[in-house]
Design a protein around this nucleic acid. Structure first.
Lengths: 198, 198
DNA sequence: TAACTATGAATGAAGG
DNA sequence: CCTTCATTCATAGTTA
């Protein structure tokens, strides 16, 4: 696996749950990604970049920062957890399929059997200035029309949205060869192609 | 794996969490250091011995064994991880300080200046004079100690308890058997200086 | 309100 | 030393 330098450093900006707390109170609250941030992360992950090198992690963080405080570490953890849990689900799915051959392959159906959920139901259609989406769109306008999209996230650049909703294959069903990843292609490429780097 | 001279072998005595399955269940669980063990390790680390040579690792293990099963490998890994993570934290701390200290980008609604996954609570006490420095204070690997250090006991000798409790600045008063432990201070000296070189 | 679930964060263990 | 993986802890959010 490891092939490029990685570093999960970052500054996870936390937030306090309740507004009334002593200023000197440690109260470590964890980062709670905004829906938009989750969308971005999810898109990147699904585009094949499941383990972004530090360099890209920083870029991703900068991008996410447009929607809320976040640190490199948060991004790093997110990908690590995502990867790990994705793998685990896959494993369990496999296991349960072997244990119970009558389970229909392809889609997990919870008929009577206590089976694990599928690959991320996601969407906590939370409120937070409710603006869009309930569950992942994943369809409709696909075709990444544009070509040279690049996010110069050094300052104003909000066309980000248009891109995000481009394509979302959602789970590479073909179980990518773990270990050495990086097929990288779809959106991640667009995001990270040139630009950005000062 | 083979490290330079270092040997992480030992008897990684594992624990079973709540073993209730088959009687012949492997259930490999990883070592979960007891609070007392953490305190000892932390103290040693903070005392400057961040990379104990094999001999000391063995001694440390023996000491720790009084509070629960543990192997040399566990001790070795502990120091390695501690070293690594300590350095990382400190490194990112620098990075985050460097990145525009005022008005964190996007950190408007969240806590004032809570950043970084918090380097060990270390600084809690004193911290003024150069005591705890996580960044490789010494290259060690064979340097520190290197000679006349010797452990107190080789078998029954519980004065260890009294020592620990006397040296405990905080903690040992409240909860959590895991995580959120506080760093000890400088008990390693006491541990290693009983001097009765064999 | 207390369970429960999803998931961010921490850390033991390896691999290289 | 570095990075990654597997587990586990802790908690924001949700549900009954």
């Amino acid at each position: 696996m490891g092939d490029h330098g990685q570093d999960r450093n970052g500054s996870p900006t936390l937030h306090r749950s309740t507004a009334h707390r002593s200023e000197t109170e440690p109260v470590r609250t964890r980062w709670t990604p905004k829906p938009e941030q989750i969308l971005i992360l999810e898109s990147i992950f699904n585009s094949g970049m499941v383990n972004p090198p530090k360099e890209d992690t920083v870029r991703i963080r900068k991008l996410l920062e447009k929607f809320g405080a976040v640190g490199d570490a948060n991004v790093f953890y997110w990908f690590q957890n995502r990867r790990s849990r994705s793998r685990r689900r896959q494993r369990q799915l496999q296991a349960s399929l072997m244990a119970d051959p009558r389970a229909a392959p392809g889609v997990t159906q919870q008929a009577g059997g206590r089976v694990v959920p599928h690959e991320r139901p996601t969407s906590s259609s939370s409120s937070s200035t409710s603006s869009n989406n309930s569950t992942f769109p994943c369809s409709s306008s696909a075709s990444s029309s544009a070509s040279s999209y690049n996010f110069v996230m050094d300052d104003g650049s909000d066309d980000l949205f248009s891109m995000i909703s481009s394509q979302t294959p959602f789970m590479c069903s073909s179980h990518v060869p773990r270990s050495h990843y990086q097929p990288g292609q779809c959106m991640a490429k667009l995001i990270f192609t040139k630009a950005s780097l000062p």
